[in-house]
């Protein structure tokens, strides 16, 4: 195979080339994994915002007794605080533009670690929210007397309750891991594969 001849043919002008028009500069949707994740994050942001608003209405919807309302407000404030912190972090990620004129290795590593970091942030927020919800549920059951759950709790041992909390957190963790893997994991895996190929001596 004559690569020099091939090079000559390669560098002759192509017949199919079309003119690049001004309209092509302004396509809004990019197709890098980061753009895809950002798009997903944008959707999730609105879902989480709607969930926060819904949670604010839960005492009214479920008729919480007056003694639990201040506790609910405290938990709700903590939840909003964590959400605000993480939303800010996600916003910074969302706005952080990438530089495709870096060399390929640096560019791939930037995408890889940026994605990893944000997936971890996303997981952390989910764990925190799950912990807050579980804690509130525990406080609710301990404070409000006369509910069905209260009667059930009176009949089971403390070890059983602790074990249940532990398993719930594990299940939340598992769902979060699977969710992150399903939505974002494939892109990270694909990038890792390309980086490994590049580093392979």
């Amino acid at each position: 195979m004559n690569f020099d001849q091939l090079k000559n043919d390669w560098n002759k002008p192509e017949t199919e080339e079309t003119e690049i028009l001004q309209s092509m500069l302004h396509i809004k949707e990019a197709h890098t994994p980061i753009d895809k994740i950002r798009k997903q994050m944008k959707c999730e942001f609105f879902v989480q915002l709607a969930s926060l608003l819904f949670i604010a209405l839960t005492p009214r919807i479920f008729g919480f007794p007056p003694e639990i309302k201040p506790v609910f407000m405290a938990f709700y404030a903590v939840t909003c605080g964590f959400c605000a912190y993480y939303f800010f972090k996600f916003y910074v990620f969302y706005k952080h533009s990438y530089d495709l004129s870096l060399d390929t290795r640096k560019n791939l590593l930037w995408f890889y670690y940026e994605m990893k970091l944000n997936i971890e942030l996303y997981k952390a927020l989910t764990y925190i929210l799950a912990f807050i919800v579980l804690s509130f549920a525990a406080v609710y059951l301990l404070m409000v007397r006369g509910t069905i759950f209260q009667h059930i709790l009176d009949k089971v041992s403390m070890i059983y309750i602790i074990l249940n909390c532990f398993i719930t957190i594990l299940i939340v963790g598992l769902i979060t891991e699977l969710w992150a893997k399903f939505y974002y994991g494939k892109y990270v895996k694909e990038l890792k594969k390309i980086i490994d190929k590049l580093d392979d001596e």
């Binding site: 890098t32 390929t104 560019n107 995408f111 990038l191 390309i194």
Partner: peptide, 8 residues
């Protein structure tokens, strides 16, 4: 090249 490598 970087765009092609990352393109989905």
């Amino acid at each position: 090249l970087n765009t092609a490598l990352l393109f989905l």
